[in-house]
Simulated scan of single mutants.
Amino acid sequence: MKTRQLADGGPFVGAIGLGCMGMSWGYAESQRDDEQSVAVIRRAVEAGVSHLDTADAYGDGHNETLVGRALEGSTDGVVVATKVGIVVDDLATRTLSRDGSPQHIRESVEASLRRLRTETLDLYYLHRVDPAVPLEESWGQLTELVRAGKVRRLGLSEPTIDQAETAHRIHPVSAVQSELSLWTRDALAPGADMVRWCAEHGAAFVPFAPLGRGFLTGSFAKPAFEDGDFRATNPRFADGAFNANLRIVDAVRAVAARHGATPAQVAIAWTLAQGEHVIPIPGTKNPRYLAENVGAAALDLTVDDLADLDGVPAPVGSRF
């Protein structure tokens, strides 16, 4: 697989990573299969995927444990990113809160190290900025973890430009993770262009949900999600919005047909085309979809393809 650098001076990783969240929660949890997920993670690494993404909040620690088990304590050549700052108050109802306090960060890093079976975290994100805690305090504590050798690099998830600037003045931001796809382009918006900010500051931009939470694959004939699936209450998957948003999928299918590719591969390739510092992390727990996603790294979209994709209609419905 082609590689891309994870921040100036950072390691080179496969151009396409693997988001592991859905293996533990968020999507079709009745289909959770830890054995298959472990196999998918290992197969991904064999296929050149060397950037795995997890968080302590995903399944309230379950996802980190799963990734740690799959790697069996050996992460040579693999960058594992995890996150701190979102707290699961109630796993059954998915009630969440934020805690960016230095004490919480100190306690959480030790738990993440144990679950991931490692002595040092490759990339540690502040999952969300806690409005009750000055960012300088949260980022300062994370910086101390770097100095202590517990963390190699730091990142931010879904920050504003101002927040990224504040953090970067204290300690380099190696990566910013935000949603980016053909139907969510906030990170490219004028005045809030986080993709550009990352390029200008030597950071990687890591798009999550590059497949529009599965919608852009064109695999849904109609919205039918089990209770608890994030998409069951997502405005873009509601009946009226769903049908209107199929116009986006139609455009993606048209480009895919030109290349003998799948819509998923086109959607991922579009994110890759936003800059050499962009490293998407499509998630899957299915080995067939893993192979399909990895194949997107070899798809080169033309100028005409990109023009057609950039011209797709705006989605109906907010992203949350």
Rank of each mutant, 00 (worst) to 15 (best):
G77L: 11
R106S: 11
S138Q: 12
E107Q: 10
V87K: 10
Q163V: 01
H104Q: 11
V78I: 15
S112R: 06
V87S: 11
V151H: 04
E158R: 05
R98N: 08
D130N: 10
A167D: 08
P102R: 02
R114I: 00
V173A: 13
Q163K: 08
I105E: 05
E137H: 01
I86K: 00
G100C: 04
R114L: 04
V80P: 09
V88G: 09
D130G: 14
D162L: 12
D89Q: 13
V78G: 10
R106E: 12
A167H: 06
V84I: 15
S97H: 13
T82H: 04
E107V: 06
D76P: 00
D99M: 03
T160F: 12
T166N: 03
I161Q: 11
S101I: 00
Q141K: 00
D122W: 15
E165A: 09
G149L: 01
R147A: 14
L156D: 09
D162Y: 02
E110W: 01
P159L: 14
I105V: 07
A132T: 12
L135F: 12
V84R: 05
L135D: 06
V109P: 04
A92H: 13
V84A: 15
Q141S: 01
P159M: 14
R169S: 12
V129F: 06
W139G: 00
T118A: 11
T93E: 14
V80I: 14
D122T: 07
S101Q: 00
L142W: 02
P131V: 03
L123N: 01
R106I: 07
I170Q: 06
L116F: 02
V84Q: 05
T160P: 00
D162R: 11
V146L: 05
S138M: 13
V109Y: 01
E119Q: 15
L121D: 10
P134N: 00
T118G: 11
G155W: 07
G100K: 07
I105W: 04
T143A: 14
Q163C: 03
K150A: 15
T95C: 00
R114E: 03
R169L: 12
D90R: 03
V87G: 07
L154Q: 04
K83D: 06
V88A: 06
E107R: 09
T118S: 14
G155P: 03
D122G: 09
G155F: 11
T93I: 10
A81R: 01
G140T: 01
L126W: 01
L145R: 00
T75V: 13
R147S: 10
D89Y: 06
S97I: 04
Q141F: 04
Y125H: 14
V78D: 07
S157H: 08
Y124P: 04
H168W: 15
V78N: 08
L126F: 04
V87P: 06
V146P: 03
H127S: 09
L113Y: 15
D76T: 14
Y124V: 02
P159F: 13
R147V: 05
R106L: 09
Q103R: 15
I86H: 08
R169T: 11
R114H: 08
G85V: 12
G140S: 13
K83N: 13
G85H: 10
E158Q: 07
I86G: 03
E165I: 11
T82D: 03
T95H: 02
R117T: 02
G155K: 07
E144N: 04
H171T: 06
R98T: 13
T75S: 12
V129H: 01
